[in-house]
Simulated assay, not measured.
Amino acid sequence: MSHPHEPVGEWWRGQVAALHRWGRLVLRDEDDAVHQMRVTVRRLRSVLSTYRPLLDAEQTEPLRAELKWLGALLGDVRDAEVLRRRLRRWAAEHGPGPTGVDALRAALAERQIQGRARLLPELDGDRYRALIAALASGLRWSEADPGKKALRKRLRRDWRRMAAAADAAANTDDAEERRRQFHEARKKAKRIHYAAESSREVFGKDAERLAKAAKSIQSTLGDLNDAAVMIQTIGQVPGPDDAVRDLLEVEQTAADTAEARFASVWKKANRPKVHGWLSQPTAKSK
């Protein structure tokens, strides 16, 4: 019988292979490759964060730093991609005529170009190759077998931190603080989503339900975040005209809609059926 941590290690190796594959596709400018590579980086970082006390710090702490570096490079490109896509959606409804939005469109295109100019040489460089080699060496655990109880405890900690941020957002009347807490909840939902995915072979359907619930939270708050980032970006456009103001109104509505939708998403996710097993060390997956 394999030790409980071994399926996590196998999942890790699959993600490292995916990262290497997506890196090659980014260099070829394949559609959606930057997004998929960024998600893979997040998956790897999430596992290193969730299981941090159970891992060999001498190996994993440098990996955390290097994955953060790579994620930032990918994020510069991907964020511009997302904003440009939202602009194209707006333009499809409002026509291609010249407006104040043109300056925003040009700025985002330039941001994406500059981001790729920083990213591509790194993906073909020694630092990235060294990172892939280090990741491919596999996870090193600080104990020979941390066991299910230890893995479950780390997942429980992540869930409770996300729940605390979600509850804090729901219980504040201050709009700015609410958005800040939603942002924290989104980051923590991503971590529990990917960490639960990594433990699916250990905890079975319990982990699947947890990952699905966290993903629903992540998706809803991701919609909110995308709209909020666009609102912030629109605010940097000098001399806004009617088109810019219309775009701003569209994005504000999108943000409000996502925020309002969160209550029902959180109610469905925050059920004992989803997370109760995390507090029951002897619970068995069904």
Rank of each mutant, 00 (worst) to 15 (best):
V8P: 01
G9D: 14
G9F: 05
W11Y: 15
W11M: 13
W11D: 14
W12Q: 06
R13N: 04
Q15G: 01
A18Y: 02
R21L: 07
W22R: 02
G23C: 06
A33C: 02
R38M: 11
T40P: 06
R43I: 03
R43D: 09
L44E: 00
S46D: 06
L48C: 06
Y51P: 06
L54S: 10
E58D: 14
Q59E: 03
T60H: 15
R64M: 12
K68Y: 05
L74D: 04
V77Y: 08
D79L: 02
A80W: 03
A80N: 04
A80R: 07
R85D: 14
L87Y: 07
L87M: 12
E93V: 04
H94K: 10
V101I: 10
L104H: 07
R105L: 04
A106S: 03
A106D: 13
A109F: 00
E110V: 12
Q112M: 08
I113R: 12
Q114H: 12
Q114M: 10
G115S: 10
A117P: 01
L119C: 06
P121I: 02
L123H: 02
D124E: 13
D126C: 07
R127D: 02
Y128A: 05
A133P: 05
A134Q: 12
A134C: 04
L135D: 10
L135R: 07
G138S: 02
W141V: 07
S142A: 15
A144N: 14
G147R: 05
K148Y: 00
A150L: 10
R152G: 09
K153P: 00
R154K: 14
L155W: 03
D158S: 12
R160K: 08
A165R: 08
A168M: 05
A170K: 07
D173Y: 03
E176L: 06
E177K: 14
R178A: 04
R180S: 02
H183W: 01
A185R: 05
R186L: 07
A189W: 00
K190G: 15
H193C: 09
A195Y: 05
A196Y: 08
S199V: 04
V202T: 10
F203D: 09
D206Y: 08
E208N: 12
R209E: 12
A211I: 08
A213S: 15
S216M: 01
Q218E: 13
L221H: 02
L221D: 00
L221Q: 00
G222W: 10
G222A: 08
D223L: 05
A227M: 03
V229M: 08
M230W: 08
M230R: 05
M230Q: 14
I231C: 09
G235S: 02
Q236K: 15
P238F: 02
P238G: 03
R245Q: 09
L248D: 11
L248P: 09
E249N: 01
Q252D: 10
E259N: 09
E259R: 14
A263H: 12
A263I: 04
W266H: 14
K267H: 03
A269R: 06
R271Q: 15
H275F: 11
Q280E: 13
A283Q: 04
K284Y: 00
